[in-house]
Simulated scan of single mutants.
Amino acid sequence: MNWTLEQLQTLRCVAEAGSFSAAARRLGRAQSAVSTAIANLELDLGCELFDRGPRTPVLTPAGEAMLHEANSVLVQCQRLEARARTLSQGLEASLTLAIDEALVEMPPVMAVLEKMAVQYPTLMLNLLNGAQDEVARWVEQHQANLGILFYQPLGVMALEREALGRLEQVLIVARDHPLAQLESPTHSDLADHRQLMIGQRQQLEPGHEGPRSQRFWQLNSFYAMAELTTRGLGWAQVPRHIAHYPPFQQRLKILDLSALGATADIDIELISRRDSPRGPAASWLRQSLRDTFHNSHAAIANQNLPPA
């Protein structure tokens, strides 16, 4: 087969315009050239594409099928051209972002990814979700360009960090848990029941107060903590957006923390390798994450201001 992209474009144009003459005007070509292009395409494909009996050409069943395939080829060609333009302008062909699995559903992160799909439609984005030690390791080992995770000490000199914001924690129990009867539990109330906690964080974060109960289970996932909490296996402190995650929301109760004093929020940060190249998409992603987290925290702060 010796068909060309120009012939496929002509086929689509005739089908859309409804006639050879209208297609010729749209393409800026002679009608005879359009008719010849279609005739040659029919010879190359071995089937008749148009019924020329009526006053205007009508696609045959074979023509309908070939038009569908031609459109697919032409769309792919447009994608190829767009990718070539972006590469020639220095845009990365692909970008890999590693995210702590507890932050994947966080609104600021989702908002940035939605904007990125519009800003860079041809960029191949790879998303890796895992525990925070996995996120740091993926970035360190060049498996990810950027990582979003909760604060953790970075012993690898090749990595650098940037603070994005702080995440509020809430105290949760199952709705049928004994603590659910208390609107504002005290330290002694919590000490009487099993605590579910992130084991790695209590070992690594400076100033972490450690478990509040002599009975505690350590996990490496906030989602796993919330799931076990819904089953009445203990109480936990998790980021607010996880407590509101649809599978958990109706099965959990958020308790008042006022009797416990100040509760530590969680720092969220962006990490990367110092020697990692920073193309336009990576730079845009960095700045968008900064702006979105900043705006999110500013909106929350304004909501908490006392009325004038």
Rank of each mutant, 00 (worst) to 15 (best):
R212G: 14
R212E: 01
R212M: 06
S213D: 05
S213Q: 02
S213F: 09
S213C: 12
Q214Y: 00
Q214H: 10
Q214M: 12
Q214S: 10
Q214R: 13
Q214F: 03
R215Y: 15
R215H: 06
F216C: 12
F216I: 06
F216K: 10
F216M: 06
F216V: 09
F216S: 12
W217P: 06
W217D: 15
W217F: 15
W217N: 13
W217Y: 15
Q218S: 12
L219H: 10
L219K: 03
L219V: 03
L219T: 05
L219W: 14
L219C: 02
L219E: 04
N220M: 15
N220F: 15
S221T: 09
S221H: 08
F222Q: 09
F222W: 06
Y223K: 10
Y223E: 13
Y223S: 15
Y223Q: 13
Y223G: 15
Y223M: 12
Y223A: 15
A224K: 07
A224N: 09
A224L: 09
A224Q: 10
A224T: 11
M225S: 02
M225V: 03
M225R: 06
A226F: 11
A226L: 05
E227Y: 13
E227K: 12
L228D: 01
L228M: 07
L228H: 13
L228P: 02
L228E: 00
T229W: 13
T229S: 02
T229R: 03
T229C: 11
T229D: 00
T230M: 01
T230E: 00
T230A: 04
T230W: 02
T230G: 05
T230Y: 04
T230V: 05
T230F: 05
R231Y: 11
R231V: 09
R231P: 01
G232L: 01
G232Y: 09
L233V: 06
L233I: 06
G234H: 06
G234Y: 10
G234R: 10
W235L: 14
W235T: 14
W235K: 12
W235E: 14
W235S: 14
A236G: 03
A236F: 07
Q237M: 11
Q237P: 11
Q237L: 07
Q237F: 01
Q237V: 13
V238C: 00
V238A: 00
V238Q: 02
V238F: 14
P239W: 10
P239E: 00
P239R: 11
P239Y: 08
P239N: 05
R240G: 01
R240N: 01
R240H: 07
R240V: 14
R240C: 02
R240A: 06
H241W: 07
H241I: 09
H241D: 01
H241P: 05
H241V: 10
H241A: 02
H241Q: 02
H241N: 04
H241E: 03
I242D: 08
I242C: 03
I242Y: 08
A243L: 05
A243G: 02
A243P: 00
A243Y: 10
A243M: 02
H244G: 00
H244W: 12
H244K: 06
Y245F: 15
Y245C: 04
P246D: 00
P246L: 08
P246A: 05
P246E: 03
P246Q: 04
P247E: 00
F248N: 11
F248W: 09
F248P: 04
F248S: 08
F248G: 08
Q249T: 14
Q249D: 07
Q249S: 12
Q249L: 11
Q249V: 14
Q250P: 07
Q250D: 13
Q250I: 13
Q250A: 14
Q250T: 13
